[in-house]
Amino acid sequence: MSAEPKPAYKASDFKSDIAPIWCPGCGDYHVLLSITRALAQLGKPPEQVAIVSGIGCSSRIPAYTNCYGFHGVHGRALPIATGLKVIRPDQTVIVTTGDGDGYSIGGNHFLHACRRNLDLTMIVMDNHIYGMTKGQPSPTTEPDLDTALTPGGTGLRPFNPLVIALASGANFVARAFAGNIGQTTSIIVDAVTHPGFSFVEILSPCVTFRPDQRSWKTQVHPAPVDATDDPARAARRIMTDDGFNLGVLYRGNRQPYTPKFGGSGCDLSELEREFEL
C-alpha cells in the first residue's frame, strides 16, 4: 500500500462533549460516527466545517460535533446552508436532515438546492417516519403503515428521493446504510470531495417506531455496478432497484454554482451617481 500522509485529525476531534439524546439502537449514532470519521479523513480542522440542520432526530447532529453548526427551524436547513456557503465558500458545509425535515416540509428547498448545485453535501437520515413527534408517516413511509395519525395507512405511494435529486440536478447521488459505517464514511468523504451539490441518502433505522427496520441490515447490498455520469441511466437504475442498493449511484460533472461577488468593491459614493440630477 502506498504511504498516505498520516491524517492530522481523529474522529474524536470532531465530536463534542454533548451526549446524544437519540434512543439506543438508533441508526443516527452510526451516522454521527461516520460523519466524524469522514471529517477526520478529509483532514480539515473542525472550525473549517459547518454542519447545518433543521428539526428532527437527525437534525440534532450539529451540536454533537465540534464544528460550527446551525440548528435552524423545521425544513430550512438547506437555505441556511446556502447563505452560509455563499458567504464562506472556504467552509466545508454539510446539511444533516431527515425524511420529514428534508423531503416534506423542506421539499421545495431540496429541489432547488439540487438545481442550484452549490458545493454542499446533504446527508439525509431516512427512517421513513417522524420519530421526534412519535411515529407519523413521512414522504418515504410505506402506504400501509398504520399510525395514529393515519389509521390503516396513508394509501399514498412513497416518493423516491434519489430520483428526485437526480431529476432536480444534484451532482452526486449515493445511498448508504447507517450500519455499514466503513462504507458510509467512505461515501461521505466522496460526497464532500465531489464538486457541487452532493446528495447522500442514508437508511437509518428508527428502532422505536419502526422496529421492523432492524432487518435492513440483512436487506442492504452493494450496488452491482459502478456510479455512472449519465443521469438517465442512473435514474433508470434507481427507479428499478430494490431500494437497498448501496453505493455511489451517480457522479455528475456539472459546474457548481458560484455567485458573483464584485471583487473588492468600489467606493460607496459611486452608487449614488445614478441618482444625481
Binding site: 447545518v52 427551524v73 441556511i80 446556502t82 447563505g83 455563499v86 428547498h109
Partner: peptide, 14 residues
C-alpha cells in the same frame, strides 16, 4: 421561506 433563512445563514457566516 428560503430567502429569510438564506440571509440568516449569510449573516451567521459574517
Amino acid at each position: 421561506l428560503a430567502s429569510i433563512n438564506m440571509i440568516i445563514g449569510g449573516s451567521y457566516a459574517g
